[in-house]
């Protein structure tokens, strides 16, 4: 059997594609990123209304009722964002004829989840100690670390998103009176920009 250059090229292309598909989770959807950003902006707006004067955010320990409101907002935003991302990813994988829960997805999630859980627990510690102003920055920083870590197993651009979240978190921790604004920018605006970017670059 005589094989030609075109066959060899096709072999190499196939090798490349399988290597990429089997190590990277490429079913993340841009639209779910945009939606997650919108949920975060809505959540930040509600949180702003709880602390209508920034003084309370910097020095104050909110009353017991406010703490529960904050936790509720955070949990609802998180659940909405995660379930939207899962639903869109399952859909995207199905359209490509792939399983969504493959080894690459597991690796990406594990790399993401470890820093996220640590950061979430630290945020709760800050809440218990009355360091409310550090809660938003710490979630940004650990989310950024999680993204940076997980980027090896998905679109490489996720690395830059992670980097930006870390920087925003550090700024938020320094300028605590604006920490909620930095949070809204990171989780809200950046997700929307990133979602549009992914949609434009990979889904058109």
């Amino acid at each position: 059997m005589k094989r030609k250059e075109e066959d060899y090229m096709q072999d190499l292309r196939e090798i490349r594609s399988i290597m990429e598909r089997s190590t990277k989770f490429l079913s993340l959807s841009g639209i779910s990123g945009v939606l997650a950003g919108l949920y975060a902006l809505a959540g930040a707006y509600l949180a702003f209304n709880i602390f209508d004067d920034t003084e309370a955010l910097v020095y104050g320990i909110p009353s017991g009722e406010n703490v529960w409101d904050l936790l509720l907002i955070g949990t609802v935003v998180l659940l909405l964002a995660v379930s939207t991302a899962v639903a869109f990813s399952v859909n995207k994988a199905r359209r490509k004829g792939e399983r969504v829960w493959n080894p690459a997805a597991k690796r990406m999630l594990a790399n993401m989840a470890v820093p996220l859980v640590a950061g979430g627990l630290l945020a709760l510690v800050f809440l218990a100690k009355g360091l409310i102003m550090l809660m938003a920055p710490v979630t940004l920083i650990f989310y950024g670390i999680g993204l940076y870590n997980a980027s090896k197993f998905t679109y490489e651009d996720v690395k830059y998103l992670g980097f930006i979240q870390m920087v925003l978190g550090l700024f938020g921790a320094f300028f605590t009176e604006y920490s909620l604004l930095f949070w809204a920018f990171g989780f809200g605006v950046m997700h929307i920009i990133y979602g549009i970017y992914v949609n434009y670059k990979y889904e058109r």
Partner: peptide, 22 residues
Amino acid sequence: LGIMSALAVNDTLDFSSLKDYL
């Protein structure tokens, strides 16, 4: 060739994952 490519970048894979990629 596809099986080898997938195994080259994954420590270990089960049958159904391989089937999925190929």
